[in-house]
Amino acid sequence: MFEKLNSLESRWIFLMTFLAVGIPILLQKSLPEKPTPMVMDVFNLVEDLPSGSLILCSFDFDPASAGELQPMAAAFVRHCALKKHKIVFMTLWPVGPPMIQNNINILKKEFPDYQYGEDYVNLGYRTGGEGVIKLITTSLDKMYSEDVNGTSLKKLSLTKDLKHIQGIDLLVNISAGTPGVIEWVQYASTPFNIKTVVGCTGVTAPKNYTYIPKQLAGMLGAIKGAAEYEKASIIQYPQLAENPQAQEGLRRMAPQLVAHLLLIFLIILGNVLHFVGRRKGLSS
């Protein structure tokens, strides 16, 4: 038994992981999440803004990290729409425009009264990373004279008076890497005192803690952050409980729980094998 376990092949571990993640996904169970204070800080910031506030959403992620970040982006967009905030979308990643489009599709489907040009505008992608941020804090026109459809920003009621992003009420950055949180903090949030909240992948979350609470008003970390934000939204807007699309993050917490438990079990098993092996004089 010891020998078998000690030389356990990776494929069996992969199979266990597959089952640990797959079965809860198929069962579609969601767990009763409780929003933590940090998530509530972010939620309250969006919630407490007066209706009609201008929010800049920079979705700097790609399809690979969309599994972790799209529920977060969707939760932000839904919340902004429920509060009737005005949204300006943009991205610093070349593969970001479809990520924006996914969220615009949510607006089109669930908030048909939300009008393009009046309630939201899609600026799309511009190359240059932090250079783009530097320019739009000074002059939006230098980087974005037209939206993603080629319409002049002067012709859209939401952006016709928007000279730069210094005047926005909140900056929401969902990012999976570079350019992302650090660049927004360095070139926009800090020098111009722009209220900023971010959502990021679990791997990049630790380094972003550096900026809380001075430069960043709050942060949502990984799918857990998204799930808690969804929960906070459901508590405030109970109609969301009937929308399964608004609970993507919550549904992913059950697979995460089982996967984490499996991980703990495997680590314990590995250590038991290590100590038994040591006692037997074997190297594990």
Partner: peptide, 10 residues
Amino acid sequence: TSAAFRAFRA
């Protein structure tokens, strides 16, 4: 998962 099982030893 496989890296944790293999490498995480006390």
